[in-house]
Design a protein around this nucleic acid. Structure first.
Lengths: 348, 348
DNA sequence: ATGATCCGGTGTATCGATTTACCGACCATA
DNA sequence: TATGGTCGGTAAATCGATACACCGGATCAT
């Protein structure tokens, strides 16, 4: 098997200089005769030449790689998103480098630093922490940040883009679905982390409660984990929440979970207590992971259009590359959709 | 924020040559006085210097990155594995680049090529296709392949390592568990892809059937998807299989699925038909994804020690780096464990 | 005394692609 | 006849880290 060809060999084979080959490679083929260009292309084809990324990156300081930082790939939602993003990126000649932040700013910063050192200048960040201060210095130095599921906040560095569903609407339609089924005691369940999406979804919840003529003060509230306890996995959060909510005097008849995994944990918790999901207590999730339709009872949830969002994120990156320093920082907000299944039913 | 420092600046600050800094960086500090080394370290610290990966890679042809190719991150098992592997790799200063093959040799090859071009020389490959011919040329050129869940086969290129559970035992204990519960009609369900792990797990199944004094010929068989139909997602495979198995005269009383996602699909299929999982028909999966314990009924399954395997894989990579060209090609086979839950019960 | 070896380094070519400066030929215009 | 501009292309510096060749002085074995 022949060793990998270099630009010099291509140049020699085509009878031109390396500069010309480089020009061809970078689309500046207007600077030469069409026949010259064709000779170069032919040489590239024959030698099966592929530019060395390291050399290119060393020279340009840029790399065709997108960093993707998610809270946890073991949550199927992020797995699915990663897959879609990768698919979209590959189509545009980009690679994807994946990192798990576990919602930890420390790790998040570590990953960004690592990626930056690797020449990555485009990062899709999926950990909706309230503050981006720990990343501000990178953005100043030229990092292109695309926030997923976290709209730009007042204190954020300038020029970061964002993509996500409208969490207010999401929280609201989930809640309205339940109030229309006659539920009057609804609990909103999430981990204790103050993420932006949690805040907004909760606001949607509150708005829908009021719109239904109910009082938020009447809703059972899970106080969350005690301080200092390390963050639990999403399902365990749902389970614990249910256990504690139902230990109190007036438990809810319906639960709105921050995401599907937490919802599934809540379902488990209900079964632990001998309650039937759907019939006794309604549960609605958020995300619409493939499993939502698979479990029993199937899970009512708010669907996020994963594929759409992934390709928008990649589009973001590609378009910036073309348009150099643009003024606008696009903020895309998609409309989520309620998928009604068996985990919700009219109140008894 | 200062621009990134280079090795030259460090050398200047420490009053030594770049060669010396390079030697320090690469652990050859025995070639200089301890005080010289300390001056260099101090300069590195003060300047917050971090070597440029591209430059290093261009020169050495190596990169501290591990490629990970999985069938599909949207399957939580692979998501969890990816996470563990990443964790382990990070500890040793490696990055992880993730790819989805969708069990397609074409894509698999494409990823390997892409990774190779990026200087990646260590790839953990998780798609147990029977043949590695499409990758042989890379292995010849020096690619270090670590096969996950696919023991080395007779025709494979030399010097590839492998890590996985003993699928024969896995298939066997799952089956024995069912025969001990009194089941006499067991169906083994998997996609039509001829993967190595499928073959071996099936062999374990057959052996256990015989050991129980039963005849394999009596077992209901799902013929699989018709030729030419594109491969389905794992859960859909399970669901379809159940639908078709139960349409025939003598359906099974227990199902052994190739993995948990397929098992969950089978459960879904049983519910479609009005059958109760566990009570009417037993189902056992493979993998033990976190969700196995979460769904209702919880899933009996064969556990793969993910974290252990991930760290072994990374260890593989790191140790090879140290030991240059070693003779032995380690093949690690771990013993899987049956986790008994509610989806299996004594036959009625 | 002599050559060999070790110590603690340094100088510099090199990896492969990009990019700036520049060059000769040709053409148009004044 | 100058002058200047465009076309089609090349030569060489450059990005940052690595590693090979080498060097002067001290030490050691014969």
């Amino acid at each position: 098997m022949a060793e990998k060809a270099t630009i010099q060999q291509v140049a020699a084979a085509a009878g031109v200089s390396t500069s010309t080959v480089s020009n061809v490679l970078n689309g500046r083929s207007n600077r030469m005769l069409p026949e010259t260009r064709d000779r170069v292309f032919e040489a590239i084809r024959v030698l099966d030449y592929r530019p060395n990324r390291a050399a290119r990156q060393l020279r340009t300081g840029q790399s065709k790689t997108i960093g993707l930082i998610v809270p946890s790939v073991s949550n199927p939602f992020w797995g699915a998103f990663a897959r879609e993003l990768e698919q979209a990126a590959l189509g545009d000649g980009y690679n994807v480098l994946l990192g798990n932040s576990e919602r930890n700013p420390e790790r998040e910063r570590g990953y960004v630093e690592e990626l930056w050192d690797n020449g990555v200048r485009d990062i899709v960040l999926c950990t909706s922490l309230p503050s981006l201060d720990h990343l501000a210095s990178f953005v100043e130095r030229g990092l292109h940040l695309i926030l997923f599921d976290r709209p730009v906040q007042p204190g954020d560095p300038p020029l970061v883009a964002s993509i996500g569903v409208d969490n207010f609407i999401g929280g609201s339609i989930a809640t309205t679905h339940l109030t229309e089924l006659g539920h009057r005691r609804l609990a909103f369940v999430s981990g204790s982390q103050r993420s932006v999406n949690r805040t907004v979804r909760h606001a949607g919840f509150v708005a829908a409660i009021q719109e239904a003529g109910l009082d938020v003060a009447d809703m059972p509230v899970w106080p969350g984990l005690p301080e200092g306890v390390e963050e639990l996995e999403a399902p365990e959060v749902g389970r614990r929440a249910v256990h504690e909510l139902f230990a109190s005097g007036e438990p809810p008849t319906a639960i709105i979970a921050i995401n599907d995994m937490t919802a599934l944990g809540a379902c488990k918790g209900l079964r632990d207590l001998g309650l039937r999901v759907g019939a006794d207590v309604s549960v609605v999730g958020f995300d619409d992971i493939p499993l939502a339709d698979l479990v029993s009872p199937s899970l009512t949830t708010v669907r996020q259009p994963i594929a759409r969002m992934a390709s928008l994120a990649v589009e973001q990156v590609v378009s910036r590359e073309r348009a150099a320093d643009r003024e606008s920082t696009p903020a895309v907000l998609l409309r989520p959709e309620l998928i009604s299944r068996d985990s919700t039913a009219a109140v008894r």
